[in-house]
Amino acid sequence: MTTQLLRGSFRFQFFLGFLACAGLLAYAIYLQLHDGLEPCNLCIFQRIAFAALGIVFLIGALHGPKRHGARTAYGVGALIASIAGIAIAGRHVWVQMQPAGEVSCGAPLSFMRETMSTWDVVRKVMTATGNCGDVDWTFLGLSMPWWSLIWFVLLALWAGYAAFRRA
């Protein structure tokens, strides 16, 4: 079964990537709405990166290109979204590893969007000045940013394998 899955069509592999992104986003929203875990600014950007990655996976799956060049283009798009997610999740992990109270995320994202330009908001969020250092959820000893980082790496490898392997 594993060999068939790995050797499956590009369309199927990218559809699995889309399902993984959709599932991760659904779980994050479930934790927010059901368990009351409010996302911080870096969490929001990780969700955006998962959504972008999921969209690339979905479009690639729907298109199902036969030519290697088109597959490569989808692979590059997925890798770009994954690398952005890795950078954001990596920053979030770093923030959580700092001593309590030393680094935070700042004002709520909605307030910053009303009072700052888009690039200033991105720069402010990425410098982590709010509650991003709080660890409210863990699984197997790892916080949600750690799991996001792991998933971004796995999905980058998956997209690279699907897009750049020989047919």
Rank of each mutant, 00 (worst) to 15 (best):
Leu5Met: 12
Ala52Leu: 09
Tyr161Asp: 05
Ala100Trp: 09
Leu31Thr: 04
Ala26Arg: 10
Thr115Val: 13
Ala28Arg: 12
Thr3Phe: 00
Ala81Ser: 10
Leu140Trp: 13
His92Arg: 07
Phe45Lys: 13
Phe50Gln: 09
Val125Cys: 10
Leu140Cys: 04
Ile88Asn: 07
Arg166Lys: 03
Gln32Gly: 08
Gln13Asp: 00
Cys132Ala: 10
Leu149Phe: 14
Leu5Ser: 09
Tyr27Phe: 13
Cys21Trp: 08
Pro39Ile: 03
Leu58Trp: 05
Ala156Gln: 04
Ala87Cys: 11
Phe45Pro: 07
Met97Glu: 07
Ala20Glu: 01
Asp134Gln: 15
Arg67Gly: 08
Met116Tyr: 10
Leu19Gln: 01
Phe18Tyr: 05
His68Ile: 00
Arg91Thr: 04
Leu37Val: 06
Ala159Ser: 02
Ile150Ser: 02
Ala100Phe: 12
Phe164Ser: 03
Ala70Gln: 15
Ala51Lys: 05
Ser148Phe: 08
Gly101Lys: 10
Gly85Glu: 14
Ala26Gln: 10
Val122Ser: 12
Ile48Gly: 13
Gln46Cys: 15
Cys105Gly: 14
Phe57Pro: 01
Ala20Asp: 04
Gly160His: 10
Ala100Ile: 05
Leu79Ile: 12
Ile44Met: 12
Tyr27Cys: 05
Gly160Ala: 05
Gly101Leu: 10
Asp136Thr: 06
Ala87Glu: 07
Val56Asp: 05
Trp147Cys: 03
Ile86Leu: 15
Leu42His: 05
Ala78Met: 08
Phe15Arg: 01
Ala162His: 08
Phe111Gln: 11
Val125Asp: 07
His68Asp: 00
Phe139Asp: 06
Val95Asp: 11
Asp134Thr: 11
Met116Lys: 15
Ala28Phe: 10
Leu19Glu: 01
Leu157Ala: 01
Gly85Pro: 15
Leu109Phe: 14
Arg67Pro: 09
Arg113Ala: 13
Gly133Cys: 08
Leu24Phe: 11
Met1Ile: 05
Val125Gly: 10
Ile88Tyr: 11
Leu31Asp: 08
Trp94Thr: 03
Phe152Gln: 04
Ala52His: 06
Trp147Lys: 05
Val93Gly: 03
Cys40Asp: 00
Leu154Lys: 02
Arg67His: 07
Arg71Pro: 14
Phe111Thr: 01
Leu33Ala: 12
Leu142Tyr: 12
Phe152Pro: 07
Thr3Tyr: 00
Ala100Arg: 09
Ala22Asn: 01
Arg166Cys: 00
Ala156Thr: 03
Leu157Asn: 01
Ala167Asn: 06
Trp147Ala: 06
Phe164His: 05
Ser148Thr: 01
Gly133Arg: 13
Leu109Asp: 08
Cys105Pro: 14
Tyr30Ile: 02
Asn41Phe: 10
Thr129Val: 04
Arg11Ala: 02
Glu114Val: 06
Phe152Tyr: 09
Phe57Gln: 04
Asp134Pro: 15
His68Cys: 00
Leu5Asn: 08
Arg91Lys: 09
Ala22Asp: 02
Gly54Met: 08
Thr138Asn: 13
Phe14Lys: 09
Leu33Gln: 14
Pro65Trp: 02
Ala163Met: 03
Gly85Asn: 14
Tyr30Asp: 04
Leu6Pro: 06
Arg123Lys: 12
Thr138Asp: 11
Thr115Phe: 06
Trp147Arg: 03
Ile88Cys: 11
Val56Ser: 10
Tyr74Thr: 07
Lys66Ile: 00
Gln32Ile: 07
Ile88Thr: 06
Val121Trp: 14
Val103Ala: 06
Leu19Ile: 00
Arg165Thr: 00
Ile55Tyr: 12
Arg71Ser: 12
Ser104Val: 01
